[in-house]
Design a protein around this nucleic acid. Structure first.
Lengths: 340, 340
DNA sequence: TTGTAGGCGTTATCAA
DNA sequence: TTGATAACGCCTACAA
């Protein structure tokens, strides 16, 4: 049990060939005598030789690693996203270096810069607005990158995002169609682009439907949703339905309603956005806009790998995933239909 | 926007000093004239120089990266664990290379071996039994490692785990104390060590309490819990309480009960294990054993960093976290007390 | 205080 | 088909 690792030199010495031959044999080059290849492979196996990734990267200029830079690691959205990314990464034998910057721009810039020599490409999620040029300035120019759910003024990178506006319109219409003429909206963080788009969709749909609206502030957290739920119950004029900008807040809100003995959807209808795995387990199951989060991550990864393989610069295409309305009991009109 | 990155040579040329001086200045060595240091730093900033991680790793023999090898990335357990690991990692400016092997031993071995030259240490979660010596054989001998929730016959590595046995005893006693004399247990996967320990705890507590038990197979998935729940309802002699080996199964079970109109805890009490974030949101909120998953990850990371810093081999200590009983409505006796 | 040069472990080029 | 040997980009003796 050596405290130090076996290097290519050890294998070469043991097999009585040069390191060049070992490298060639192990990397499947064809200019190696078959008998020699066999010997080298056997020797490497016996010594349990494993190439040193840093050395290999330095020489081959490939790390076989993708950097994933996220604002946070908390919650089902990110875990689903990483899972989707991982699936594609594994299929292409790529490693994943994950990094979270906790919403701090400086940390994000730092994380981005620290990727040099570690990764072959970058997957970045940066859902903030009000930072013109920040990203483009901090993204290493020599690294291919794909952005997820990110708002970019200049189309310098490929972007994958969700049709938040359209999704919010669809959901609001669904609630209107169910006969709710007074709908409350619990918003997301002010500086979050997705949240803004969802709010915009809500407003437009309300206006088009000539209904009554009520808007409460939120921050995408369950706690804030709970708070909003209590506020709603205390309001002088209780709305017929509540549309939360994401599922976590919808769940917090539901908790507040349950606690107060207010029936959903009997007394008040409820809907969210994202379709996190939990959404179908709560009681009643939550109506929501389904975003295939894992798929979103997988798509982004696939797109990035293409960009890495490509010899010349790829066009900065933008792709938008359309979320699907999933109607569950929380917004059912009369007899609740179960949909899992 | 150069397609190629700035190297230390560029900085040296620009600042009219040698690369050695640049290296020293940037790494905070004290044998550099202050004026020179200023110049170097200014030049590096201007050129947006960033050291090449692979090159630095190769010469310094440090990657500033920790490898995290998990069986899977799906679900709240893993996302919480990674979050806890990340917190400590960030505090120590370490990067995280995550890898999942999807339960396949070969892939696990491969993942472990591929870490050479990529990481300074390993955090491994390997909850399987029946693989004597597998891990110790596949873990690179030259890398410090800390195992999480892993059963090891030979104490070759530090292990951090949860007191599954004790937790199961506590929960079973809680149900017994509430007056339930006939308790069903929904088990976990056969090859999962945690699951076995929880079952063992359940059995011992039942025996000590001289109560009646019923055991159903499970696999930690919500779907299986749902199935078990339906089986329980169809049983000739319905138990007074159900203890599921983890929360996900308890939720599936709860879903089956809700669907059938069976009241929890009125008709039957229910409890789980893990205290995943969801547990408190379902209706009724779930009684469970709280395991601070993020804390578990954080502890492991801290321990690993100590091992890396240490010049000599560390003793392979074993640390066990004791889960805490969280009583919520799902097992309440009479008047339900809410606890969030 | 500074520069020169060797080494980290690979891969790749060029002769032989 | 093989073996020297020069990169790859950085760090760090050792000399100056």
């Amino acid at each position: 049990m050596a405290r130090t690792a076996v290097t290519i030199k050890d294998v070469a010495r043991e097999a009585k060939v040069s390191v060049a031959t070992v490298s060639r044999a192990l990397n499947g080059h064809d200019n190696v005598a078959e008998s020699v290849r066999q010997l080298v492979i056997a020797t490497a196996d016996r010594l349990r030789y494993q190439p040193h990734a840093a050395a290999r990267s330095l020489s081959s200029r490939r790390t076989q690693t993708i950097g994933v830079v996220l604002p946070d690691l908390y919650g089902e959205f990110f875990s689903e996203l990483i899972r989707g990314i991982d699936q594609v990464a594994r299929a292409h034998r790529q490693h994943l270096l994950v990094s979270s910057y906790h919403g701090h721009p400086e940390e994000q810039g730092e994380a981005l810069r620290a990727m040099r020599g570690r990764v072959d490409g970058l997957l970045v999620l940066s859902p903030y607005v009000d930072r013109p040029g920040f990203l483009t300035e901090n993204l290493p120019a020599y690294l291919p990158a794909v952005l997820i759910n990110t708002h970019l003024e200049d189309a310098a990178y490929p972007v994958l995002s969700i049709d938040n506006y359209g999704g919010a319109v669809t959901m609001t219409r669904h609630l209107l169609d169910a006969g709710h003429r007074h709908i409350a909206f619990i918003g997301g963080p002010d500086d979050n682009f997705d949240a803004r788009e969802r709010l915009r969709g809500f407003r437009d749909a309300i206006k088009a439907g000539d209904a009554q609206a009520m808007e409460l502030p939120g921050d995408f957290s369950e706690a804030k949703g709970y708070e909003a739920g209590k506020q709603l119950l205390a309001a002088s004029e209780r709305p017929h339905a509540v549309f939360a900008a994401n599922d976590m807040m919808a769940l917090g809100c539901l908790y507040a309603f349950n606690e107060a003995g207010v029936q959903v959807p009997g007394d008040i209808a409820l809907a969210g956005f994202d379709d996190i795995p939990l959404a179908r387990f709560v009681h009643p199951p939550l109506t929501t806009m389904q975003v295939s989060i894992a798929e979103l991550g997988g798509h982004a990864m696939t797109r990035l790998l293409e960009g890495i393989e490509a010899t010349e610069a790829q066009p900065a295409t933008t792709h938008t995933l359309v979320p699907e309305l999933i109607v569950r009991d929380s917004s059912a009109r009369n007899s609740p239909q179960r949909k899992r």
